[in-house]
Design a protein around this nucleic acid. Structure first.
Lengths: 194, 194
DNA sequence: AATGTAGTACTACATATGAAGTGGTGTCAA
DNA sequence: TTGACACCACTTCATATGTAGTACTACATT
């Protein structure tokens, strides 16, 4: 079992790309090797099984999904009203959509986790932690809305992103921003918009 | 290419189970044969390729997802207030969750559709039609809320179901009903609850 | 009633593909 | 010199799929 962390990370990033592009079906050691541009057999040396590869991909995804300091800073500057929240949500949706391969890979992992307890546990913890982090952050920011607001936004926007990435024709691209606005408007009534 | 429609449907139902249980990776002609309890080679005789099998599974899913007459009748009986909407949404969430294998299979298809234009087109049409159907229905029912309400509910509740089916530990089972209630409360402000 | 025909069910085999493991060689740095 | 890693060739293994052929059933024809 090889140790070189940079190479390991590169292999995991390659695995994310493969997962997104070819699905769980296409994720093989050899495909990862090819994607990473390393010689055949390298991935075999770094991961003892496909299972372990999947779990490590999960870790790697969240390692890359560091909370964005800029976004948090934005949230804390200027007026704390609903428009700010809308802006923030647009930013998040945009940011997540841009990391398309990561999001799709994570969906593949979610489906895989149905059959892999270890993976499920890892993802559950990470997702929950991410959600809690967002809730705490929101509450401390002084922005309108409570924990439930954040949860409902989390739910609606995640599916919006999924829809956008898997069936882009359902909601035309140019309507996405308006949709985000509408979601925020509904979830955060104007009386709370001060 | 065999014709027997009953047998074809049985094979497609088996394919849905296989997709849900073993993922796209496990979906092979042989696995479908085994699941359907028919002799080896049968699926081969009914589908010219794995691609065609996937597309037909998509059709089959929506064939089985007939709009539920009971649910619609429920919507039209009694008072048309927010509590009714909450009740309805709980019913829908429950119904979809119960057809676990179907929902998971559809998610697999969504991910597959990333790589298969024919599948993507089919799913886009169906999803859009389903959404439009729900919007029209809601508007005609006299229940509070407009088209946007339905869209936002669609988004939030779909992800809630996905979360529940893939990472059940994120939202404890006993909180699901309350969560649905909260979603409806946020999306449908009380001033519109008459 | 006997026979023919078409469609389907089933089985077995042949082919092909490619995935993973293993062992070995080369290379670099401590 | 030794140890860790990069790289490569080859073997093994599993399994997916296609094909070909036989058996069965229903229906039509005579």
């Amino acid at each position: 079992m090889r140790q070189n962390p940079a190479r390991r990370a590169a292999l995991l990033d390659a695995a994310i790309e493969v997962l997104a592009r070819e699905g769980a079906r296409g994720l093989t050691f050899r495909a990862v090797d090819a994607e990473a541009g390393v010689p055949v057999g390298t991935a075999t040396n770094y991961f003892s099984s496909r299972d372990e590869l999947l779990v490590q991909v999960g870790h790697r995804y969240y390692e890359r999904l560091e909370p964005d300091a800029d976004l948090i800073a934005d949230a804390l500057s200027g007026p704390r009203d609903r428009d700010r929240v809308t802006e923030l949500m647009r930013g998040i949706v945009e940011r997540v959509t841009t990391f398309r391969s990561g999001y799709l890979a994570l969906l593949e992992l979610r489906l895989e986790s149905t059959r892999r307890p270890e993976l499920r546990e890892l993802l559950s913890k990470r997702v929950r932690a991410d959600l809690d982090f967002n809730i705490r952050n929101h509450e401390e920011s002084g922005l309108p809305g409570d924990a439930t607001t954040v949860v409902v936004l989390y739910l609606a926007l995640n599916w919006l992103i999924l829809e956008r990435l898997t069936l882009p024709d359902v909601f035309p691209e140019e309507e996405i921003d308006d949709l985000v606005t509408e979601v925020v408007e509904r979830v955060l009534p104007s009386r709370a918009a001060r």
